[in-house]
Design a binder for these strands. Structure first.
Length: 305
DNA sequence: TATCCAAGGTAAGTT
DNA sequence: AACTTACCTTGGATA
């Protein structure tokens, strides 16, 4: 076992681990106490969180287990790899300069309230295939159930990894999900999303397309590229671009942000997804508009107004 | 206890 | 291109 500490003072703008992994951006992290995405979130905890890095993103080509918690002035970590700090920095965007991002955000009352409430929350940089599947599954789903579905997919189809005497499960590879039948996936309570996930996994396996390819494209072309996957429309594509592929300007138009637009920025509603997205993106400052979206999403979903 | 409803939407079919 | 509708499942609300 490898372990260490990353001083919080090194993170410009601070860091709120719980808000980061429990704000509905990522579904690859878990808490051993079963409290993830509980209706009444157990705020203020210093719980350990864990994830399994896919073999494709590790130096050993084996899945690696990462655990961390926010303790006294530091992010404490334990992992199966000594290179956990660089992985955590990448996954949790610890090198984003939050102070600069907030400073570059327009002074809108709603945004200021959200940034005030959840200061230190960062976007995540999820492995792309897991992010793609997670958000395909997110259609018409509650956040807590999306998380449950992803955990079940990992246990049913992913590789088991033993670390520190416990068993963890990696998120399934495209091969593993492509090999599953629609019936298998429906068994995991995916409902009508089952064939979407199976066919999308097949597209990746067969080399038809890969979400990472979108990185090479301009933002709106990248969104268009991702919609070729089955079960991926403009909203899901924006989520993957924002939470995995470094397009911090992406503003997914989900039900919460649509409600916010209707209430606070009605002039930004231009009818079509593409036009409304473009307009609200500019209202939220362009370059880091996705950060603003995520703060607003979490703020509203947890009772803010 | 039974029914209803909405949950981070998308695909397919119509106008 | 814009507009409708069907779609699995389930926890929580309502009767």
């Amino acid at each position: 076992m490898h372990a260490g500490r990353l001083p919080v003072t090194e993170f410009d703008g601070g860091f709120d681990l719980q808000a980061t992994v429990e704000s509905g951006q990522t579904y690859v992290w878990d808490r051993p106490d079963g409290g993830m995405f509980a209706d009444e979130v157990a705020w203020g905890g210093d719980a350990w969180y864990h994830t399994v890095l896919p073999a494709t993103e590790t130096e050993t080509s084996e899945p690696e287990v990462l655990r961390c918690r926010l303790g006294n002035e530091a992010l404490e970590w334990e992992a199966s790899t000594p290179r956990a700090p660089e992985h955590l920095t990448r996954l949790l965007r610890l090198d984003d300069d939050l102070d600069a991002i907030v400073a570059a955000t327009p002074e809108l009352p709603l945004l200021e309230r959200a940034y005030e409430q959840y200061g230190g929350m960062r976007l995540v940089r999820d492995p792309s295939f897991a992010s793609l599947v997670s958000f395909i599954c997110s259609a018409q789903m509650r956040v807590s159930r999306i998380h449950g579905m992803q955990g079940r997919l990992a246990r049913e189809f992913g590789d088991a990894v033993t670390f520190d005497g416990r068993t963890y499960y990696a998120f399934p590879t495209p091969d593993q999900l492509a090999a599953a039948s629609e019936a298998d996936l429906r068994e995991c309570s995916l409902g009508y999303r089952a064939p979407y996930v199976q066919r999308t996994a097949e597209m990746v396996t067969e080399g038809v397309a890969h979400p990472d390819e979108a990185r090479e494209l301009a933002y709106e072309d990248a969104r268009e590229y991702l919609t070729q996957f089955v079960g991926v429309g403009e909203k899901v594509a924006d989520c993957v671009l924002l939470f995995s592929l470094d397009f911090l300007e992406a503003v997914p138009l989900d039900t919460w942000i649509r409600t916010a637009i209707e209430k606070y920025y009605p002039e930004c509603d231009r009818g079509s997804y593409a036009e409304t997205s473009r307009t609200i993106r500019e209202r939220f400052g362009g370059e880091y508009a996705g950060y603003a979206q995520t703060y607003v999403f979490f703020y509203l979903r947890t009772g803010g107004e």
